[in-house]
Nucleic acid binder design. Structure first.
Length: 893
RNA sequence: GCCCGGGUGGUGGAACCGGUAGACACGGGGGACUUAAAAUCCCCUCCGCAAGGGUGCGGGUUCGAGCCCCGCCCCGGGCACCA
């Protein structure tokens, strides 16, 4: 019969399911290990091999840690709210609830066929009212809190101190005061609106949508915002101490975008208003020759002179209608536009009147939305000054000559033309200037962040409803009865003006008491911001999670997923975790201790070798898939040609995508080669973090290895007879076999600890190759029973089905999953001799077997006596002899 | 432009703390078994006939560099009017 992967795999999958092998409970006596995958959006296309890579890695770790005695939490669920289900529904008329349920079932069975050891009793689904009840509950925690800047933590809104004069103005004033400080608040301001998708987007989402070819414009709308900016400093500081890839830490730091500088107040000629700017270069204040406000800046209206009013209005209007793409490309080309408001600012030190402009290179949301422009020392200001003919004054002098009229000098130097700070180097000049301004009462140090508040409402149907109602008097009230369920609807099209689909559910919106429900829904991130918390206690109906479960299981010890979530999901999750931490709902300020990003699995496409033929008549790229291509070899080189015409092609490895047609579905591979082979191949391709091409030949190679393993244990039965376990030797076998076994145990253990799965597999391959002598000596050292059993255990995390089969055949009842991990005997890892490399002048000239116990002098003497050394020293006495015990001897002469 | 990664055989990749470069596979070549093929097993496979040369290129440190330092080139990713 041979290695029948289908029979073996379905048998053990059924066994695990039947025996609930991977279900876990809190056990304070045992150390816990929480290993988590980024849960998938269950799309209609099903799982692809890219998902499988990350899931296999976590499964190996989960199984390994179980065998090492840890109580392992390894759950899976579905991030099932989102736009695709809704769009699919619009196309086909099938309700998202229906398609989502089907897709989840499909994903689950695909995952089960791969033999992943998830605790399925903990499965969660973000679209389940029993789940999103708690998403809504967390939202109400945010809505019900404010950020106490003195204590640097969130506190219930009831604890917000109300100034006496406000209290005197009555409850409406108090409510407005509170609403202005809640961590969730309504804001009426320009948002990123995508007319194609009819949806508003968070800042983090804009780039992706623009890349997909959609327009994004800025449009004023009333939106729910989350005050993530209050957490900027903590989101930054707490990155310290996380075991995350440096790359992801950098992305997070970039998003938070901390910068230190100062605020400077400018008076406005003829007005009482103060114009405050943020700058990182207060030392260049004397070089400020004009001011720039963001077009949306609230002061624009007040200060614009009548002569300039129409020009300013036109510019503001144009800015609002410019797309993000426009502004991006303008920035790359360095094109600057703007309009003079006619107003003049009073320089705080010189008293000079300098013009105030508006320009869209200044952004309302950053700093104060206004800048002092120092064209001599800022490239953008320089470009603008050149374009508008504004003066450029040098106030920083580097060691070498610079011409600031031609080009901005942005580096450090010594302050010049700056009476208050002349002669000071930049760093000290900055501090001195702020100190000086502080004394005058017109400046202070300040830290700003690029991070903006998080736009949290979407005009979609398939998302969590906000648990809020609007009273007729305009106040907002929380709904205490959760969940607020989505009303059944069949028409989800948002209106062109951006009215959410839920506004059409008239009966649902209208509350009996006359108030109206909020009709926006939450973004897809909401459900994924806290799912790792729900997994610790997924069926709790009275609490989102019990204190006990949370403090036992959290934080996540290992989190594996794609790097595409580095800015969004991870930042948002950390933010929610911190709010929950402040309010005492969780015990840790950071949710994910260790993060690993799996690489992308690449699929093959074929393109013409001839560059002239890369595109067809219509200018489209000509790409072909495996099925179009014929492969043949010549001189050991593989050549590809187009089957139809014989045209020469070359292979190109590209990210798998449906449009390119190079997606590999794991189901087919599982059927042909088996789940164990697919899992092992994905790990054998290379380091987990690295991208690698999917090559069927490699998968077949792993399959062959598993067949070899099978044959190592079993001999084929004759006729209808089942395969039989080979006659095994007692114990761990010969000295050679024992040494090999214990070296393998040692290596595999070390390599799994380092998540170096490809090299762990190579250790197993060496064991299988060498444990039983081949050829004529085959009968001399049969496979020993003890070694076979320990090998089965080593194989278990990587190829769990086959490992179970082997374990059972060795006479062990039950599953191997809860057996203990083998331990290497240190005595057997010690070799008595080693290969001593002999070098002369750093070049390798020979080697010999030397005893481990030999002293440096003895090693040198052994090496000195060899013919090679005499030959290459050619009669000279070595000037120096370097001996590295256990490694080499080098004669320098 | 700035900031992170990374460049090792025909291919995927090994190489711990600066100490035998190319483990383990894929592909290729040769052989055994077979009437034959498949499957399986065995041997060879960085380049070179050899001396020797080889880890993107040029230099440096060192007895010794894939690994450390300096200067480039290329690939991947992130950020990008953030004052």
């Amino acid at each position: 019969m041979g290695y029948d992967h289908q029979a073996i795999e379905s048998r053990w999958q059924a066994h695990w399911q039947e025996h609930r092998s991977f279900e876990v409970e809190i056990d304070p006596k045992r150390p816990k290990f929480y290993v988590l995958d980024m849960f998938p959006y269950p799309s209609g296309n099903g799982l692809h091999v890219g998902h499988v890579e990350g899931y296999t890695a976590t499964d190996i770790i989960a199984r390994y840690k179980r065998m090492r005695g840890f109580n392992v939490l390894h759950p899976m669920g579905w991030d099932a709210f989102g736009l695709p289900a809704e769009r699919y529904a619009m196309k086909t008329g099938r309700h998202p609830e229906q398609t989502t349920a089907e897709n989840c079932a499909n994903f689950r069975s695909q995952l089960q066929r791969l033999g992943f050891s998830y605790d399925w009793s903990r499965e969660v689904n973000t679209t389940d009212p029993g789940y999103y009840k708690w998403t809504q509950w967390i939202f109400l925690q945010l809505w019900g809190s404010y950020y106490d800047r003195d204590r640097q933590c969130a506190r219930p809104i009831e604890e917000l101190p109300i100034p006496d004069e406000l209290r005197a103005q009555g409850p409406a004033a108090v409510a407005a005061y509170q609403d202005g400080r809640r961590l969730a608040y309504l804001q009426d301001s320009p948002v990123n609106w995508c007319p194609d998708l009819r949806v508003v987007l968070a800042n983090e989402e804009v780039a992706e949508v623009v890349d997909a070819g959609h327009e994004v414009v800025r449009k004023p709308m009333k939106q729910w915002m989350l005050r993530i900016t209050e957490y900027a400093e903590r989101l930054l500081a707490d990155l310290e101490g996380l075991d995350w890839p440096p790359h992801v830490l950098e992305i997070q730091r970039n998003w938070v975008g901390r910068s230190e500088g100062g605020e400077i107040d400018f008076g406005i000629v003829g007005h009482d208003d103060t114009l405050t700017v943020f700058t990182t270069r207060p030392d260049t204040l004397y070089g400020a020759t004009y001011m720039v406000l963001a077009p949306e800046h609230p002061l624009v209206d007040t200060i614009t002179t009548d002569a300039q009013r129409s020009a300013v209005a036109a510019y503001v209007d144009a800015t609002l209608h410019r797309t993000e793409r426009d502004r991006q490309s303008a920035s790359i080309e360095g094109i600057k536009t703007g309009v003079d408001t006619g107003a003049r600012a009073r320089h705080p030190l010189t008293g000079e009147a300098i013009p105030i402009w508006i320009a869209d290179y200044v952004i309302l949301g950053y700093g104060t939305g206004a800048i002092m422009a120092v064209p001599a020392h800022d490239e953008r200001d320089h470009a603008f000054a050149k374009a508008m003919g504004l003066p450029i004054i040098q106030v920083v002098a580097p060691e070498h000559e610079v011409d600031v009229q031609a080009e901005a000098f942005v580096g450090e130097g010594v302050a010049v033309n700056s009476p208050a700070i002349d002669g000071l180097p930049t760093l000290r000049a900055k501090a001195k200037m702020l100190e000086h301004l502080g004394e005058q009462g017109c400046g202070r140090t300040r830290v700003t962040y690029k991070l903006r508040d998080w736009l949290f409402s979407r005009q979609r149907y398939w998302g969590e409803p906000f648990p809020l109602v609007h009273e007729p008097d305009g106040t907002v009230r929380a709904v205490t009865e959760l969940p607020v369920e989505l009303p059944p609807m069949s028409d989800f099209d948002p209106s062109e003006t951006g009215e959410p689909p839920l506004s059409k559910a008239a009966e649902w919106v209208q509350m009996p008491d006359g108030s109206m429900r909020e009709t926006n829904t939450m973004p897809q991130w909401a459900g994924s911001c806290w799912y790792f918390l729900r997994f610790v206690d997924p069926t709790n109906s009275s609490l989102p999670w019990s204190k006990e479960a949370e403090s036992y299981w959290m934080p996540v010890d290992l989190y594996v997923g794609g790097v595409e979530h580095a800015a969004t999901h991870l930042l948002y999750s950390r933010f929610w975790q911190k709010v929950l931490f402040d309010l005492g709902h969780v015990s840790e300020p950071e949710p994910f201790r260790r993060l690993v990003n799996q690489g992308i699995i690449l699929g093959a496409i074929f393109v013409p070798t001839d560059p002239a033929r890369e595109r067809d008549e219509e200018g489209r790229k000509r790409i072909f898939v495996q099925d179009d291509v014929e492969t043949h070899e010549e001189d050991g080189q593989v050549h590809y040609t187009l089957r139809a015409t014989g045209e020469a092609l070359r292979v190109q490895w590209d990210k798998m995508s449906k449009s390119r047609g190079n997606v590999v579905n794991p189901d087919h591979a599982v059927e042909t080669y088996g789940a164990d082979a697919v899992r092992m191949y994905e790990m054998f391709m290379g380091p987990l973090e690295q991208s690698a091409p999917w090559q069927t030949e490699g998968l077949a190679g792993i399959h062959r290895f598993l067949q070899r393993v099978y044959r190592l244990f079993f001999e084929e039965g004759e006729g209808d007879q089942a395969d039989r376990l080979r006659p095994l030797a007692e114990g761990e076998g010969s000295e050679r076999q024992r040494k090999l076994l214990h070296r393998t145990i040692d290596e595999v253990t070390d390599r799994l600890d380092r998540m170096s799965f490809n090299t762990a597999i190579s250790s197993l391959m060496v064991f299988v190759r060498d444990v039983v002598p081949r050829g004529d000596d085959a009968g001399n050292e049969p496979l020993p029973h003890g070694a076979a059993a320990q090998f089965a255990k080593l194989l278990a995390p990587l190829a769990p089905h086959l490992a179970e089969q082997l374990w059972e055949a060795l006479g062990h009842p039950g599953s191997l999953a809860s057996e203990s991990w083998p331990q290497a005997d240190p005595a057997l890892l010690q070799e008595e001799t080693f290969t001593l490399v002999i070098q002369v002048n750093g070049k390798r000239r020979g080697e010999l077997e030397a005893p481990k116990s030999a002293s440096k002098d003895e090693l040198a003497a052994l090496a000195r006596a060899t013919d090679e050394v005499s030959k290459y020293l050619d009669g000279r006495e070595p000037k120096r002899v370097i001996v590295v015990p256990g490694r080499l001897v080098n004669f320098v002469g």
